[in-house]
């Protein structure tokens, strides 16, 4: 599998223990766009957009993340087709090859508290909040959500940091 994690010949891409799963889900299709024209472009493609910045919405298995006032990251089947489409003025597409790690389970708060200076416990996962922050020294975008009452986070980062981030989270998770 070609993924940011394989940049360093990592063979394990999934880790599980009681109350915790860490998975590499980098291979999902992604599309990035920024600029004042980004909203116009996405709407023209029928994409629903989050009203608030630093939040996300999930629409038919597609995740639409609003990273700032006028920057978006989309993930899901088919979103990469947007790269080939003409863009309006002031819409600048961003090649997204991010590493994406998925953390699930009750224990994720312990991992997050050891790796990131954000209070995730008090955040409302139902709002799908996005955090553009630093985790173990790496700039990351974190999407908090929940499924069946259990918390879940997606952590996106520059793919060249992917192997380091994955190994570091595995080390913390392994020590819990």
């Amino acid at each position: 599998m070609i993924s940011p994690l394989s940049f360093e010949n990592i063979t394990t891409t999934e880790f599980a223990k009681e109350g915790l799963i860490i998975k590499d889900i980098s291979n999902a299709e992604k599309f990035g766009i920024k600029g004042k024209g980004a909203e116009e472009f996405l709407k023209s493609q029928g994409v629903k957009l989050p009203e608030k910045y630093n939040t996300a919405i999930i629409d038919n298995d597609k995740i639409i993340m609003r990273l700032g006032i006028s920057e978006y990251l989309l993930e899901g089947v088919g979103v990469s087709r947007f790269y080939d489409l003409p863009k309006p003025t002031q819409a600048y597409q961003v090649l997204r090859q991010d590493c994406c790690l998925l953390l699930e389970g009750e224990a994720i708060y312990k991992i997050l508290s050891q790796s990131c200076a954000i209070d995730f416990v008090k955040a409302n996962a139902k709002d799908l909040p996005l955090f553009l922050t630093s985790m173990v020294g790496v700039g990351v975008t974190i999407l908090l959500s929940e499924e069946a009452g259990l918390p879940k986070v997606r952590i996106y980062c520059d793919p060249t940091y992917g192997a380091y981030l994955f190994k570091t989270l595995l080390e913390i998770g392994g020590d819990l």
């Binding site: 940011p4 940049f7 360093e8 010949n9 050891q114 173990v136 020294g137 790496v138 520059d158 793919p159 060249t160 940091y161 192997a163 380091y164 570091t168 080390e171 913390i172």
Partner: peptide, 12 residues
């Protein structure tokens, strides 16, 4: 834990 971020290129 002594976090020391390091990067690898896609060709690592």
């Amino acid at each position: 834990r002594g976090f020391s971020p390091n990067r690898v290129t896609p060709l690592h």
